[in-house]
Computed example of a mutant assay.
Amino acid sequence: MKRYLKALGVGTMLFMAACGEGEQKTVVKVEDKKIDLTFVTFSGTGEEYMMDTNSLAEAYKKIDQNVTIKMEKIPATEYDNTMKIRNSAQKLPDIFPVRVVTMESFKTVLQ
């Protein structure tokens, strides 16, 4: 019985390997693909430094020419409501700070 199960297991693995080889996949080099990221922050987080003084977007452009970072600042008083609206519309930015008081609202997207 052990011999039969062993042969069945090996046969199944060989079958799965043979089936996988028939697929044709297109490989896109990351270097060739243009990537746009959105970075949203709120006032009072050092955004002037990241956006103007030492531009995060320009600094990253020196590392990778194909990545563009769009910076956006929202007033701190409107940030929580704006992000809740974007979350419900499934239009959240790629990078954004989450305040502890609103962490529960973003638990499904922060996994």
Rank of each mutant, 00 (worst) to 15 (best):
L110G: 05
V100H: 12
N81R: 08
K70R: 08
L92N: 06
E31C: 13
T102H: 12
V40I: 11
K33S: 04
L14C: 05
V100K: 14
A18H: 05
K29F: 06
K61V: 03
L37H: 01
E23I: 07
E23R: 07
G46P: 01
I63Q: 07
L92R: 08
P93E: 15
E21Y: 15
Q24A: 10
E72Q: 12
I35C: 05
D32L: 04
G22N: 06
F96C: 08
S55F: 02
K62G: 05
V40M: 04
Q24C: 08
K6L: 08
D94K: 09
T102M: 12
L8G: 02
M13A: 10
A57F: 01
T68Q: 06
V109Y: 09
M1S: 03
Q65F: 10
D32W: 05
T12H: 03
V98N: 04
K84N: 10
K34C: 04
V28G: 09
G46R: 10
M71C: 13
N66G: 09
I74K: 01
L56D: 02
L14V: 14
L14F: 15
K6N: 02
E47C: 02
M50K: 06
N54G: 14
T68W: 01
Q65T: 11
M1T: 04
E48N: 15
V40L: 08
A76I: 11
Y4I: 07
V28L: 12
F106C: 02
V98T: 11
Y60E: 02
V67H: 00
K29Y: 11
T12V: 12
K25P: 04
T53I: 12
Y4Q: 08
T41A: 14
C19F: 09
N81P: 07
A17E: 03
K25F: 07
L8Y: 11
V67S: 00
M51F: 06
K33R: 12
S105F: 13
Q24Y: 15
K2M: 03
F96N: 03
I74S: 02
E23D: 13
K25R: 07
Q111E: 13
N87E: 05
G44A: 15
N54H: 11
F15L: 08
K84M: 10
M16C: 06
E78I: 13
V40S: 00
K84P: 01
K84W: 10
